[in-house]
Design a protein around this nucleic acid. Structure first.
Lengths: 173, 173
DNA sequence: GTTGAAAAATACTAACT
DNA sequence: AGTTAGTATTTTTCAAC
């Protein structure tokens, strides 16, 4: 897991693969302005370095019958690290929960939960979430509609949070 | 965009492609227990029917320098549909916001925002979010750590919300 | 040490059975 | 849905900068 500095080409590759994870290597190379072999090497290097965690098909939840998404704020009684870990392990075993984030301040959790309908969500709520040890309170917020859904992070080819420092900068004139 | 009924093989394909979006068609076919050409035909059909919305590389935010994820609860002054739409359009123009869900009840929004650091998030907050028209209040919750992150939906090959009805069921003995 | 070019191996696509 | 054949892509090897 070597950390390599990213240049413009790497950023472009990451951006394009985030937009279309099944883009062929030749198309990727064409857009990046390099030939295919070095492009593929860069992709492998980015994977090995941990920049790319994986590739996923984006499945339409509605089509699969998951008509409701609920954000559940969960407060725990004990905030001892061992208890937090135990809760997290439990959450990881529940397929309904797609994301779980621990929030700062009140040491509570925000869960993104999918279910076929509201009735089914409540079954999850009573049978699993509120029944779990250490859970003190749960506030469920039904997502009416998803205004925006952009997987991943914003990647600007030219400038970004992780600035690159390149010794020899040579641009073609 | 024809809606087709899913059988076990379709579910398996969707599950495998969600787990690994770059899985080769031959591997996909091998796992599904069919040969490659009909497997590819199924994949194309699933794409056309809207079950598969796309494919994305999963980029590590930390590696890209996005060290903070913040969930922002946003309340609006006006809940008129036109104002909601205007806010949603604005949100869509901000790359920092990766997800935006409208919640039931108080007609407020839950935004998932990424930034390089807390300072940079506050810049977004003051310059964009709180400065936006119609925004009455914003409550920012910093995500300390991500306990679970499973893109997509749970796909059980055998049983799920969308039940299949197959006429001719013939299992090999 | 990294990049570009050409080879072989493999996978994908489109016919037909 | 399976088989075959043609096409494109990936991967390896090798030469050049």
């Amino acid at each position: 897991m070597r950390r390599v500095k990213l240049d413009r080409i790497d950023r472009r590759i990451l951006r394009d693969l985030q937009a279309d994870g099944r883009m062929t290597n030749v198309e990727l190379a064409r857009r990046a302005g390099i030939s295919a072999p070095p492009c593929l090497r860069r992709v492998r290097a980015l994977e090995d370095a941990g920049y790319i965690r994986g590739y996923h098909a984006d499945i339409n939840p509605e089509a699969m019958g998951f008509h409701v998404t609920v954000f559940a704020h969960v407060g725990l009684s004990s905030q001892a690290e061992a208890d937090l870990k135990r809760f997290e392990a439990l959450v990881n075993s529940w397929p309904e929960v797609r994301e779980c984030n621990m929030l700062a301040g009140e040491t509570d959790f925000l869960l993104k939960v999918v279910a076929s309908d509201w009735d089914n969500y409540q079954k999850f709520l009573t049978a699993k979430l509120t029944a779990a040890p250490n859970v003190s309170h749960v506030k469920s917020s039904l997502a009416i509609r998803q205004s925006k859904f952009e997987p991943g992070v914003p990647i600007d080819v030219e400038v970004g949070p992780e600035v690159k420092d390149e010794e020899d900068e040579e641009e073609e004139v």
